[in-house]
């Protein structure tokens, strides 16, 4: 029943190859299945962000390949890759996920507009997601009028909008207090079940790690442990 959505083969990333080379990711073979709820953990500088960027098609590997569903994303041209990200990958960043001049709901609708969804679909889906995120009351507020936790929930809704193949979240809770962290993780976990959305997130936070159903540990760019719970 489960099938791989991401497959990396001998993935390697070297920064500054000409000056002082930094090997950020080293020969990573990783397979992520549809419906996983995976945490990437490890000490600062171990390569978590780099790995997520490579998987998300934001950065190009020095060696190796990334296959998303049936697509070798290394073979896409820039515009195609941009379009691929738009349609198949959801992103949640640590902060500054939202367009400040748009309301919470408009932020979700905006990405669907880029995805060419029609008006009815946009309105229906954004309302549904706002409801699921527990943001129904606050959906007409602008980001500046929302708490950090609420902003991250809108970001998750935005990432889910097009039902992407997977959602990448690089330290989504880094700027949140413990209560907001817990509620964001609960919502992500619920979306993982209700929408069968695949989540891959990086974190330092033990409470976040505890909620993951698969934990991949990186050290110096290499996978040192990979446990499923």
């Amino acid at each position: 029943m489960s099938m791989p959505v991401i497959e990396t083969i001998k993935l390697k990333k070297v920064y500054n190859p000409d000056k002082i080379p930094v090997v950020a990711i080293d020969s990573v073979d990783l397979t992520i299945e549809q419906g996983e709820f995976t945490a990437i953990v490890g000490p600062s500088g171990c390569g978590k962000t780099t790995l997520l960027n490579l998987i998300g098609g934001l950065d190009v590997p020095t060696e190796g390949s990334v296959k998303v569903a049936d697509t070798q994303i290394g073979q896409l041209r820039e515009a195609q890759l941009t379009d691929f990200r738009l349609k198949h990958i959801g992103f949640v960043f640590q902060s500054y996920n939202l367009i400040p001049v748009l309301t919470a709901r408009e932020n979700v609708e905006f990405i669907m507009l880029l995805q060419n969804s029609d008006k009815k679909e946009r309105e229906g889906r954004s309302a549904e997601l706002m409801e699921k995120m527990g943001m129904k009351e606050a959906m007409d507020r602008r980001p500046a009028e929302l708490s950090g936790g609420q902003q991250q929930r809108v970001a998750v809704a935005r990432a889910l909008a097009s039902r992407p193949k997977f959602i990448l979240a690089d330290e989504p809770t880094a700027n949140l207090d413990s209560k907001s962290t817990e509620s964001l993780l609960d919502i992500m976990s619920r979306m993982n079940q209700e929408e069968n959305a695949t989540f891959i997130f990086s974190t330092h936070d033990h409470r976040v790690i505890d909620k993951a159903r698969r934990v991949i540990t990186l050290e110096d760019g290499k996978i040192t442990s990979d446990e499923r719970r």
């Binding site: 820039e78 515009a79 941009t82 990958i89 960043f93 990405i111 880029l114 995805q115």
Partner: peptide, 16 residues
């Protein structure tokens, strides 16, 4: 910069 970077990352084309 950040907003534009975010938009490009989530899939907004250069032309757009």
């Amino acid at each position: 910069t950040k907003e534009i970077g975010m938009l490009r990352s989530v899939g907004m084309q250069k032309l757009r």
